[in-house]
Design a protein around this nucleic acid. Structure first.
Lengths: 212, 212, 212, 212
DNA sequence: GATGAATGAGTATTCATTCAT
DNA sequence: GATGAATGAATACTCATTCAT
């Protein structure tokens, strides 16, 4: 049993990596089993279908990414810090970045889209709670919190995931986030560091200095 | 020559309709030629490849949609009105809505994404000019105009294209747009009508009354 | 040992039921072991192969069905009555009728054919003895008895197993059977009741009245 | 167009031969295209599916076999002779006999069964007309003609197609046929020659002399 | 301009069977 | 007796693209 579990996890990891780097559609079962060094039958022993494998891969990703977020929420940091930490925790790890940096090459759109959707779904309630805490702490001030949080996440996803953004984009994003949540001007400037750091392949953000 | 052009346009229209209703991936060349009643060779006489057909289809769509926008820009309405008109002009026509309203069924993601990207690319400079005019007219007040316009478009796309949005979403979107561009509170409330109206299948937005 | 025997019998019963209801080809080993709640290895501990399982299933069926026939033969009823009883005993039991009555759906042809063949093989000598008895009793009068009995069985199988027969078919079958065995006209009219009764789903034989 | 037709016929012939000799289930598309020396796509250009190929093959066979029968019916031979000729015309040609003589090896059952069914369906009305003519000519005398003809065909199929029959079987079959149709004793003895001749691989029927 | 026959690489999935534990 | 992980050959079907006529 233990052995089987390990093997399944291993396959899941391989599938995950290949889906990310080559795209779901462009990854054949043969690719996966060759990489894993197993027989075709073994693959189908663990997964009912390719589609189901994608499902499992996505679930795994989401779980991994929300897990950290939840524990942050349960800690007793101040609201702003929690927000920082949660947002940081859901950013895709560098290793997840497909080769050649283009997570959303046309072939990846499908998986990427699904992950984004599920992630937003999961993270909105978490961040909403943080914003509520922040309101109690006098940091934020707004109504319709979940809707605002969702917009913030959507914007963040669309703007920054592709890696083709400028410092100006960051500036405007910070500005609008503060206004969105009714926060003090410049109080959320920390976001800058969350965005600017991630992928080592990013060049255009190398000298992201404070310009304001 | 004229005849050939017409034939190509006809094929383009058919491809366009099928891509939209069934998805690019799920539309085979055979589907297209059967619908058009031509031979396979004829198809390849007009298009180098399926991919190239997609390219042409997208180009055609964008052109159609920005054409109107440009003429609006060149007119001499006041800035706010221009904005209304341009935004209205780029909303997908009802006929483009695939059967049962789900333009972004998984199979359509690819094309939809590409259209969105190209559209944003084309419309940002147009709306930016409008915003500039608006600033001269004292209606808007902000820096980094293209970035702000782009964010507004991105948000609008992500929020409203899927049709699963609430009145609260609209409220927040209006609020944020005003703040984004430095407009007077409630000055952009007109957006509500642009969003709430389009698809006849939308029920949840039927009684979108002013709540503020 | 006892336990093992019981287990094997249980498997046999399951296989039998599945072969009948879904067809041999359409029943996978996985289907069987899932139904039985055992591991794949266990199945192969009891059966050498799927083919061998079919063999065993058929053998089991035949045995069950001829068993009764033999005991009838050994009893001391008059010949005609024996014939009635034996023929009745080899008609497939209602539970063996696959769902919706179509024992010979294309997928079942293979098994059905084999069962029919084996059954004919086994029953011909039994019924031949009955006919011989009948000749001694002056009821039948013919030569080449086994051949005649075999033809009678073949006709019966082909005509009545599928359930799509008419009253006319029954009339002709009775007529020809009497002539085949040299029996008195109308002396075998009892056959009618053997045929007309069986499956409750049969509608076309509901009012099978004597028409002669 | 002509060329395509020829190609399709050629493929049909190959499929037919392979289905007969190896069985439908055991013949893969690859087998067929290798034999034909064409690409897989070409096969699917002519046939929608393997199943549809089987359909076409069967149709072709039936057509070929009933065609002759119809022209015989339309001729002006006496009834008995017509019957002889029609029955002779529907016997499978020697070349159709699969290699090693076993047309109904388990793997062939499916196709064989379907052919038999369709053939009976088609031939019953033809032979019924002949019997009617025979009745007018005073040769036959019976009621329920189609039913009787059908039984005769069924018996003939089941008894003689497999090739494992004896002279006694023939004798009884002739006897029963005469009685079935109300013909004079020995008037249908000619059937013997129709049955005894066909397959060269048949050994047990080699010296089929008149024994009555 | 137009045809349609021909291609062939590519793909997911099934399943009876084996064997070390 | 029993398990279940591992196998791998087999198979039907798709589809964008080419090219001789």
């Amino acid at each position: 049993m233990k052995k089987g579990e390990r093997r399944k996890q291993e396959l899941l990891d391989i599938a995950y990596r290949m889906f990310i780097s080559k795209g779901y559609e462009n990854t054949s079962i043969d690719d996966i089993i060759n990489e894993a060094g197993i027989a075709k039958g073994t693959y189908y022993y663990y997964f009912k279908s390719k589609e189901q494998t994608l499902e499992a891969v996505i679930e795994m990703m989401i779980e991994k990414e929300t897990e950290a977020a939840v524990s942050i929420l349960d800690s007793d940091m101040p609201a702003l810090q929690k927000m920082v930490a949660i947002i940081a925790s859901i950013r895709p790890e560098p290793e997840e970045q497909p080769i050649e940096g283009a997570l959303m090459r046309p072939e990846n759109i499908i998986m990427h889209q699904r992950i984004k959707q599920k992630l937003v779904e999961k993270v909105v309630p978490l961040l909403s709670k943080v914003v509520e805490e922040g309101m109690e702490q006098g940091i934020f001030s707004c109504d319709y919190i979940p809707e605002r949080v969702r917009m913030m996440l959507i914007l963040s996803n669309e703007l920054f995931d592709e890696g083709s953004f400028t410092d100006r984009d960051i500036d405007v994003f910070i500005d609008i986030t503060e206004k969105l949540l009714g926060a003090q001007k410049n109080s959320m400037d920390f976001i800058r560091h969350l965005i600017a750091a991630p992928a080592p392949s990013d060049v255009q953000t190398a000298n992201a200095e404070d310009k304001r």
